[in-house]
Structure formats: structure tokens, C-alpha cells
């Protein structure tokens, strides 16, 4: 693709509740065929943003286009092109997995094969089971199956793998890769950075309602963020230095301070470190972020 066709366009998007700006002027595009990950702590504005794009919430100001349509005015034709996996589902579940999927498939003009979808989410053995009798992770897989059965052009995945065991998560990733290879555009929110790294082409990091960074996943935080960091203690003082040649620095330290410099560490920042650094920077500078939420988030 030489020119990017934008499936989602967001400009200066704001959502104000009373005096609180849940979303405070964010911009991003999602290109056709791309998987875009929206990252950020709870309360940062991820879900508000995604629900505005899904048509569930009205925006206070700014502009949004989803598949060329204002999501506040999307009709049935527009909805038929979307797949939505909501954050939570507590439905009574008095139908079986296969009944649910057949029913939802019938709502769409060009649905996927129901048996294939059930197989794709690994629920063949549960096809005839009432949804309310499934485990939490299995119900989540039904949600995903319902989200993709209509063969969406654009798929919203709001924390899709919460409650999955590691094996189910890996299988889910495989499923998403298949959808990606078929050209589906995906907007993903997740708490799991490895998930974003595995699936995402680009990511936006939201904190306090603002986009603090937006880049290909491997470039989040800027070039410096992944430069190794050497830390040591010298004359009772904590010292650190970013360097592309940590070995040379350590050798120099050994020359200067002896064979075992005090508290020597060489740190290669992981995506998680970069992310936490971004979030931390934002929460320390912004007044409306909720630090307690951020900390529980960090713990995950």
C-alpha cells in the first residue's frame, strides 16, 4: 500500500463529564489492514475513546470518522461492517454457543461459517452448551466469536484476553493473526504489553485523557527510551548513564573503581519499562490523572 487509506480518523476528540475531561483532545488514524493498540492505565480514557468510535457514546467535541462515517450517526449498513468485542459481558446466556453464533451470523449480510468460527475460538466441544454454563474464559471466547462472525472490516477488541490462560491467549493471538492476514483492520485495547507487541503494528499510549505517545510498537518512547542504562553507586551516590556501548562503560568503571563496582546494573529497557516511563511521566505532570489506578495498573 503506497497511500494509507484511513479506516479510523480521530481529530481533537474530547469527552467532558462535568469538569472532568475523560478524553482531552486526542488525534490518531488507523490505516486499513493495520492493528492499532491503544494502551494506558485504567481511567486513562481508552474505553471512552473506543466507545465513541463504536457509536455507544457521543463526543463533546472534535471529529471522528469510522469507515468514513461519523460514529454518532452510523446506521445499520455501517454497523454491519464492524465487529465489536465489548469489555465485559454478563448476559444471561440461555442459549447455546452454536445458537448464539447462528443467530448473530444471520444478522450480517456476509457472515463467516459458524462451525469454522467456533473451531477458530476452540469451542467445538462446547458448541451445544448453554453459554451461562461456560467458564469466564470460555464466555470471553464466545464474545470474540460473535465479534468476528459478521466478517467485519474493522474489529474492536476491548481487553479481549482478560481471564484467558496463557495457552488460550496464544491461540487467540493465532486467530487474530489469521484475521490480520485476511485484511481485517483491528483496534485493540489491552493491559498486556506482550499482547500489544505480538499483535500491534502501531500503538498509542493514553494517560489522563491525552495521547502521550503514538508510534510503531518498537519505537514507543523515542529512540533514547531503549538505549541501555548503566547504573552504579559511587562515593555513596546513585549514578546512571544511558549508552549504546554499555560494555565499554562497564570496562571503564572497572578500571576506575576496581573489579566489582558497587551496585552495578546494566538495564536494557523492555517495552514495559518504556511504557511505565511514558505513563509515569504523564501522571507526574498532569493533575487530573488518578495515581492510585495507575499504580494498580502497573502491578499487573
Amino acid at each position: 500500500m503506497t497511500t494509507h487509506e484511513n479506516v479510523v480518523e480521530v481529530r481533537e476528540l474530547r469527552k467532558i463529564y462535568g469538569h472532568f475531561a475523560a478524553v482531552d483532545g486526542i488525534d490518531f488514524d488507523i490505516h486499513r489492514g493495520e492493528t492499532f493498540a491503544l494502551l494506558g492505565p485504567n481511567g486513562a480514557g481508552k474505553s471512552t475513546t473506543i466507545e465513541i468510535l463504536e457509536g455507544y457514546r457521543d463526543r463533546t467535541s472534535g471529529d471522528a470518522r469510522v469507515l468514513g462515517v461519523d460514529p454518532g450517526r452510523g446506521g445499520l449498513d455501517w454497523k454491519a461492517r464492524l465487529g465489536i468485542v465489548l469489555q465485559s459481558s454478563g448476559e444471561s446466556g440461555n442459549v447455546t454457543v452454536i445458537e448464539q453464533l447462528r443467530h448473530f451470523a444471520a444478522l450480517y449480510p456476509n457472515p463467516r461459517d459458524v462451525d469454522e468460527v467456533i473451531a477458530a475460538v476452540g469451542l467445538q466441544e462446547k458448541a451445544g452448551t448453554l453459554i451461562r454454563k461456560l467458564s469466564g474464559g470460555q464466555r470471553r471466547r464466545v464474545d470474540v466469536a460473535v465479534g468476528i462472525v459478521g466478517r467485519p472490516e474493522l474489529l474492536f477488541l476491548d481487553e479481549p484476553t482478560t481471564g484467558f490462560d496463557p495457552e488460550a491467549r496464544r491461540s487467540f493471538w493465532d486467530l487474530i493473526r489469521t484475521l490480520q492476514s485476511e485484511g481485517t483492520t483491528i483496534l485493540l485495547t489491552t493491559h498486556y504489553l506482550d499482547e500489544a507487541a505480538q499483535l500491534g503494528d502501531r500503538a498509542g499510549v493514553i494517560a489522563g485523557g491525552r495521547m502521550v505517545d503514538l508510534a510503531p510498537i518498537g519505537e514507543l518512547g523515542g529512540a533514547d527510551a531503549r538505549t541501555p542504562l548503566v547504573r552504579w553507586r559511587e562515593a555513596g551516590e546513585q549514578r546512571e548513564q544511558r549508552t549504546d556501548a554499555p560494555g565499554a562503560l562497564v570496562a571503564a568503571l572497572i578500571d576506575r573503581l576496581g573489579p566489582e563496582p558497587d551496585a552495578l546494573e546494566v538495564i536494557r529497557p523492555s517495552l514495559e519499562d518504556v511504557y511505565l516511563d511514558l505513563i509515569g511521566r504523564e501522571t507526574s505532570t498532569s493533575d487530573d490523572a488518578e495515581p492510585t489506578t495507575t499504580e494498580t495498573e502497573v502491578a499487573r
Binding site: 469454522e116 491461540s171 485476511e182
Partner: peptide, 16 residues
């Protein structure tokens, strides 16, 4: 749970 067997690309506007 490996893959959907369908290989057709996600169709565009008209068919929806």
C-alpha cells in the same frame, strides 16, 4: 483453535 480456514479478504463496503 489455530485458524479460520476461510482465506477470502475482508470485503469492502458494497457487499455489506
Amino acid at each position: 483453535m489455530s485458524a479460520t480456514t476461510s482465506t477470502t479478504p475482508a470485503p469492502r463496503t458494497t457487499s455489506h
